[in-house]
Amino acid sequence: MSLKNGIALSIIPQILLVKGLGNQTQLIETYYSNGLYPLISKFFRGLLGWIPFSLGDILYFILIVLAIGYCYKNRGNIWTNKLGFLRNIAMVLSIAYFTFHFMWGFNYYRQPIGEKLRLGETNDYQELVDFTKALIAKTNEAQFKITGDTGIKVQIPYTQEEMFQKSLEGYRLLSRKHDFLDYEKESVKTSLFSTLLTYMGYAGYLNPFTNEAQVNGRLPNFRFPVVAGHEMGHQLGYSAEDETNFIGYLATINNTDDYFQYTAYAYALGYCLNDIRRGDKDIFNRLLTELNEGVKLNFQEMREFWKSYENPLEPLFKSMFNSFLKANNQPKGIQSYNAVVSLLVAYHKAYPL
């Protein structure tokens, strides 16, 4: 009983320790993100990567079933011993909190990738507009190169497994430019709960306890390569969503495959156009007319995909994830995905399209 109490109460000093270490960015970067974490990540990727299905999904399912079974079996004791039940919940949360940060979570406090790449700050609206125009030209060019017709949408002909393998090739080529983004020991899979993820509004996730990168298997192929690159970026120890959006783009755009390059250009373009629309709708509408019809059809494909799975619970799941991100050193929450735009603009000032 005293052991259970001790484990339950240990969550308090754990939280204080994490918040204290969270202010020591260089310490985290040196000893965790570039020290302990790569060993943990490579070990689990090597251990579980060869398994063709997601062991992490099965683990979550078993834990949920056990929790429901425990509550049902002990419903009488729970009602009469509420403090004991709350203590047990605190004990489970304490263990999960420790395991999460040890296995992956401390990466939320590492050095930002913009500093590592020595990228300057950029908030200039005209720079964004100029970069978006360049992206439109690249996206149109890539679309026409594949289809030979500006009015036909791109259909990526690869299987999901083939796209996983091509993503590895993209990372291999990217590591020649930025060696800290070298990816070894593949462990990226489609989630067993892809339908549930779609209804929740998620394109993928990293299981921090098994280090398996999960991609929503229901995604249209038009978006699949960049999402795979995004989740693999999480495996490299980058937790911030804007940074893994950026890494996923880099890994996909550096691929020699024409289809992958097209998806990367279109992915970046979508975020940039959204930022421009928030700033000036007239400029947004003018830029939209410059897009090939085939590109617009691919964007429409994604809108219709997500719209077909809209449901009343999706905002709740998004709100929960928003709170999770804010609790883990991402003050913008779910909006941090959109912060990739400043990274894209700054990067391509140093490395023009």
Rank of each mutant, 00 (worst) to 15 (best):
R110P: 00
A8G: 07
R45K: 13
A96N: 03
T122F: 04
L63H: 08
C71D: 05
E115S: 13
F44V: 00
L9R: 12
P13H: 08
F102H: 04
W104F: 14
Y31S: 04
M91T: 10
L27C: 00
L93A: 11
K42A: 07
V92W: 15
Q26T: 01
P13G: 05
W79E: 13
F61I: 11
Y108P: 00
S10W: 12
Y70M: 06
I11C: 07
P112Y: 03
N74A: 07
L86R: 11
K73V: 03
K82F: 12
I95T: 06
L39N: 08
I113D: 08
P112S: 09
R118F: 08
R75V: 04
Y108F: 08
T122Y: 00
F61C: 08
N34K: 14
N23L: 15
F85P: 02
P13I: 15
N107F: 00
L27D: 02
S33N: 11
I40K: 06
T30W: 04
Q111P: 02
N81F: 07
Y97G: 00
I11A: 11
G105E: 09
F100T: 02
Y97V: 02
R45C: 04
K42Q: 14
W50V: 06
N23P: 00
I68H: 14
S33T: 14
Y109W: 01
L66Q: 13
Y60I: 05
L93F: 15
K73D: 11
R45H: 04
K73A: 10
G69S: 14
I95E: 01
T25V: 14
S41R: 07
G35E: 10
L119F: 03
F100S: 01
G46R: 12
G49Q: 14
Q14I: 07
S33E: 02
F43P: 03
N107R: 00
Y60C: 02
N74W: 03
N123K: 15
L21R: 03
S10P: 03
C71S: 13
P52V: 09
K42V: 10
G35K: 11
T80Y: 10
G46C: 08
N23H: 10
I78R: 05
G69F: 09
D57P: 01
A90P: 01
Y60N: 05
L86A: 13
I95R: 04
L16F: 12
I78P: 13
I7T: 03
L47V: 06
G46S: 10
F61T: 13
L59N: 09
I58F: 12
I28T: 01
K42E: 06
G56F: 15
L39S: 11
Y32T: 02
S10G: 05
L128F: 10
G46V: 11
I78C: 09
F98W: 14
V92G: 01
L66K: 15
G20E: 10
S54I: 09
T80D: 08
Y60L: 07
Y31R: 04
W50M: 03
L55S: 03
I28L: 01
G69I: 05
F43D: 02
I78H: 05
Y97A: 02
N107W: 01
Y125N: 13
F106N: 01
P38V: 15
I11S: 09
L9Q: 07
G46T: 10
Q24N: 05
